[in-house]
Design a protein around this nucleic acid. Structure first.
Length: 829
DNA sequence: AGCACGCCGACT
DNA sequence: GTCGGCGTGCTC
């Protein structure tokens, strides 16, 4: 008899760097048919054999090999694999592309709520306690009393009362003596709500016989007749709505005529939203051509990427809707990505209004339970459309036909946690491996995406006309330096001031855009020049009028507003800069009769506040709406005829090569809010850089010229799309140690590059180490190195980083430094 | 991360 | 002698 062993290769759910690899476990014979690739299992791990959740990535058969060092899998966690083979492939690909950990990639695909965590519970064994021989120490008594008092408690909760070391030692000793008992438990953080259903188990030919057999029980017969019509009915429904009591159901149960089954009930986050139908619109010629072409690609399982470049209001959403409809007709599923679901409620409403059901929503506002339910709905095939932010790209569909990324250029599509993926990259992968079509849409496509169009990697389709034939708004540039010269120190130019006045008289609505929240953006002493900064970040504090406090916009810390300079005690301390709160007060003082509202992070922090403000704006109660970038997306209000951009160019001063692109996108985005109805829209753009190309071309709304100019500059300075960037960030509490660590890494990168023959070009590849843009955040210092690579050396650079920061990390970086790798950074901070 | 081993100094 | 401090190394 041969010695045949089944071995599971697993990833242990533990985010420690060193454990980010496959571990082998023996599969006990009774589980051989259950445990396969993608199954979650429980395994004993480490010296203490603590129980951990693990993901099976492969199953091998070993014959006559020494497996004595291997431990056994305790049990499977799920009956069915939680990951498909395709998903395991994608996880491996993500690890390779983003240099992240397996478990980080896994957590993208599986919602946080499904992932179980081990908990240790302890309780006192009274018998042993009463019989113990020696005198206990004070701390032992304290801990025992505490545990006695609470019954069975989680060990974690002890750490709140006692120090870790105390607990550690005491518990260990008492456990050895048997006085306390420790139980390891893996609890699901989610309670799956199960509901009981009743259904007939009698076949049709036996039905009559069964009915006759309970002649005396009239109500039971009625219940049988009732169930005959339906497949299965909730017990709660039978009892509450139809008056069939427990005894009636039990009667049929005991005769084996019906059975009770349990089903997971799914909470529906859309449940409390009312549903307004959104009828199908007849597409115009431009739209029809695009819909037909893409539908043809979907129907033929072609791997294709389209970029729809269409101005705001050109009817992209209707194209999306009809494409999804055609996808569903083919029996396939579709994913619709939006930058931020709370800011694009209209998109969601339209999809719901058109398709009514089968839609799952994925976004950050969901509770763990809701997220889990939505994920289950997709995995089980109950939903065939997913609408959501970034994370929705991982929706577990098995017959994906179409992925739509709306507002493709938005930076929210880039993850800020490891793996630092961009939705577009994941979408391209899925499209390629699941034979589905990818559609990108934007009025201001990212330079990279449009460039791929130029290179014929994606197919660009232009939408030139506004669907309702509305004219694009007229953008007027105001030179704010001129205003100063003419003695106007106000934040409003004379032109914008008079336009607002006119608009108020005409009973039209105005939007004012300012991308800085708070009241004053910095506080400074006029005597000594001291600027008040956050104690743990390298950031000047913003004054907030509502709370009368200074706030750090980085770590969120709050300080009382000083009346005198904290440095020199001078009373000559002044509040400078204008944020949305101050703008609101200023505008109110200029236009006392106007009804003004403000929409920014502070005004919308309460749940539902966002919707409330939008509703009252929609109803026309509000004359002037002041807001940050929050108002730039998705608002479609026909009565808005004037948009004022208070300062368009603060971003242009940032050391970011993408700044002009962001300014251009933002101006066009805000401008698109004006003139969506019958009246022509007007935009007043205030700037200190009127001759900057991004301002000038934004005013002309000329995307193509802007694209060409930008591409020219990117080429000259070798920025993406002509190069690939890699950013490495080190963060640590010890400034010097962090700097030395990143310097060491930088030197090593350069050394390896040199050894591979890159001697003269080193300064064009490796930049840094530099201090982070915000050098200190939450008392931690940040440094970064930027690597600029071309097609030839990208693989080499990636291999170097993998070697230095992952495979041999211990040799180069100490554990108290946080390292982060960004393979295609959108911003460098 | 945990947990154990092991090597040193301060005590019953 | 031995208890306990923490540095080091491993986890299938």
């Amino acid at each position: 008899m041969e010695n045949k062993k089944y071995i599971a290769e697993v990833i242990v759910n533990n985010s420690v760097n060193k454990l980010d690899k496959l571990f082998d476990y023996i599969i006990p014979p009774q589980f051989i048919n259950i445990i396969k690739e993608g199954t979650r299992v429980l395994v004993p791990f480490g010296k203490g054999n603590r129980q951990f959740e693990a993901y099976v990535f492969g199953v091998n058969i070993k014959l006559d090999e020494d497996t004595s060092k291997l431990k056994e899998v305790i049990r499977p966690i799920d009956e069915e694999p939680i990951l498909t083979i395709n998903q395991i492939h994608m996880i491996k690909w993500m690890k390779g592309k983003y240099l992240c950990k397996y478990i980080e990639a896994i957590q993208c695909l599986i919602p946080a709520g499904v992932v179980n965590k081990e908990k240790r519970f302890i309780y006192v064994n009274r018998e042993k306690l009463n019989n113990h021989k020696y005198e206990m120490t004070e701390i032992q008594k304290d801990i025992i009393n505490y545990v006695e008092e609470k019954g069975k408690i989680n060990v974690e909760s002890l750490y709140k009362r006692f120090s870790y070391n105390e607990v550690y030692r005491v518990i260990k000793q008492l456990e050895n003596e048997g006085i306390i008992i420790i139980e390891n438990k893996v609890d699901s953080r989610i309670d799956i709500i199960k509901e009981k259903y009743v259904r007939l188990v009698i076949s049709k030919d036996l039905y009559k016989e069964a009915l006759d057999s309970i002649k005396g029980a009239k109500r039971q017969q009625e219940l049988m007749e009732f169930l005959k019509e339906k497949v299965e009915v909730k017990i709660s429904e039978l009892v509450n709505s139809h008056g069939f009591g427990r005894t009636i159901i039990n009667g049929l149960l005991s005769r084996n005529i019906v059975e009770v089954i349990e089903k997971e009930s799914k909470r529906d986050p859309l449940l409390n939203l009312e549903l307004k139908p959104f009828p199908k619109l007849e597409p115009n010629d431009e739209q029809r051509v695009i819909i037909e072409e893409i539908t043809e690609a979907i129907n033929n399982n072609r791997v294709e990427t389209y970029l729809i470049h269409g101005v705001t209001g050109s009817g992209k959403t209707e194209i999306y809707l009809q494409l999804i409809e055609n996808t569903l007709n083919e029996g396939k599923q579709g994913i619709v990505l939006v930058p931020e679901i709370s800011l694009t409620p209209q998109t969601v409403e339209r999809f719901r209004g058109r398709f009514k059901e089968g839609i799952a929503l994925f976004h950050s506002g969901l509770s763990d339970g809701e997220r889990y339910d939505e994920w289950r709905r997709v995995a089980s095939g109950e939903a065939n459309i997913v609408i959501g932010a970034r994370s929705a790209i991982f929706a577990p569909f098995n017959n994906l036909g179409l992925i739509i990324i709306d507002e493709e250029h938005e930076h929210t599509y880039k993850s800020d946690l490891s793996p630092k993926y961009h939705v577009k990259e994941i979408a391209e992968y899925r499209s390629k491996h699941e034979q589905s079509v990818l559609v990108l849409g934007s009025a201001t496509p990212s330079i990279e995406s449009y460039f791929e169009g130029v290179e014929s990697i994606v197919k660009v389709r232009e939408l030139k006309n506004r669907a309702r034939n509305a004219k694009p708004p007229n953008i007027e540039v105001i030179d704010m330096r001129r205003e100063l010269e003419c003695g106007n120190k106000s934040i409003l130019s004379r032109r914008l001031h008079s336009e607002i006045e006119k608009n108020l008289e005409a009973k039209k609505q105005t939007i004012l855009f300012l991308n800085r929240r708070g009241y004053s953006t910095f506080v400074s002493c006029r005597s000594c020049g001291h600027v008040v900064k956050c104690k743990q970040c390298d950031i000047s504090l913003t004054f907030h009028m509502t709370s009368k406090e200074l706030q750090c916009h980085y770590c969120g810390d709050k300080y009382t507003a000083p009346r005198e300079c904290p440095e020199c005690s001078s009373k000559n301390i002044k509040y400078f800069g204008v944020g949305t709160q101050k703008l609101e007060m200023l505008i109110q003082s200029y236009f006392p009769k106007a009804v003004i509202s403000r929409m920014d992070l502070d005004a919308t922090s309460k749940k539902g506040a966002h919707n409330e403000i939008l509703e009252s704006f929609k109803s026309g109660e509000i004359d002037i709406m002041i807001g940050t970038q929050m108002i730039t997306k998705g608002l479609d209000f026909p009565n808005v005829t004037l948009v004022g951009i208070i300062t368009a160019d603060t971003m242009l001063n940032m050391p970011d090569f993408r700044a002009p692109e962001k300014v251009f996108q933002q101006v066009l985005q805000v401008s698109g809010r004006a003139g969506r109805g019958f009246d022509e829209g007007k935009v007043i753009l205030q700037t200190y850089n009127p001759e900057h190309y991004s301002i000038m071309l934004a005013a002309k709304q000329d995307y193509i010229s802007f694209f060409e100019k930008e591409v020219e500059l990117r080429k000259a300075f070798n920025y993406p799309p002509f190069s690939k960037l890699i950013n490495i960030t080190f963060t640590g509490e010890n400034e010097k140690e962090t700097y030395l660590a990143i310097s060491k890494i930088t030197d090593n990168i350069k050394y390896i590059l040199k050894s591979k023959g890159y001697t003269n070009e080193l300064d064009d590849i490796v930049f840094g180490p530099n201090e982070g843009m915000i050098y200190r955040v939450k008392n931690k210092y940040r440094f970064y190195v930027l690597l600029k690579s071309n097609k030839e050396n990208y693989t080499l650079l990636k291999a170097i980083i993998k070697y230095l920061l992952i495979d041999s990390r211990q040799k180069f970086v100490s554990d108290n430094i946080i390292t982060s790798i960004d393979m295609n950074p959108l911003f460098i901070v």
